[in-house]
Amino acid sequence: MVFVDFVRRLGAFCLDFVISLGRFGLFLFVTIFWIFAKPIKFKRVLRQIHFIGYRSISIVALTGIFTGMVLALESYYALNKFGAESLLGPAVALSMLRELGPVISALMVVARAGSAITAEIGIMKITEQIDALEVMALNPFRYIMVPNLIASLVSFPLLCSIFNVVGIFGGYVVSVNLLGLSPGTYFGDISHYVKAEDINMSLVKSIVFGLLMFWVCCYEGYHTEFGAEGVSRATTRAVVIASILILVMDYVLTSILF
């Protein structure tokens, strides 16, 4: 009897999981369908770019400069052991471009904008604002999801680029002013070692992370249930799942683009 109960519970769990996965996939498919089905609402896209992109610049720049500064210090410690301090510039630049830029900027934007998007959509859901759109014969995917998707795809690579530039500058400040490296050595070797593929990798990663943030955060908001507690649960889940997926996808993309 206990075994049968266990199998039943396991079956129900698996079924729930598969249904959720199906709904998750369908959510993205429907959003992409609505990009092409009717004209895009450009004002709403611009509003979301302002929210996700513009209003994240300060937090991304701040984390970028400190990441670059600490990276320069740590790399100097390691490179100094091999007498390769002259490679500090390329070490900072490559680390920022290939790895830290896309990942940390994405995590910061998920925490700042992703959580807000989930909460906003979740509140719209529980206060029947999304139903109101539907009753007016206006599709919520066209009005809410499509602008968020486009805004994420546009904002993420731009924020990542800002993070990279500011981070490399942060590394420069520490290397030149604190560690005594010459500016020429820092920047000269960067142009020698950093290739276009490294910049492309950074941009590809950030676009994929932008898609992930939209997908998880909007999906969780759209499927919010049970009042204020439901919104809080959906927001927490969205940030946790999006952050984990970003780190997992980072490894997958690095393996592919290596």
Binding site: M124, T127, Q129, D131, A132, V135, M136
Partner: peptide, 20 residues
């Protein structure tokens, strides 16, 4: 078709459902 049927309706939700 669904849109054209829905255009016949006005729905006053319990909480109003105004856009915040």
């Amino acid at each position: 078709r669904l849109e054209s049927i829905r255009e016949k309706f006005g729905y006053l939700f319990q909480g109003g459902a105004l856009f915040d």
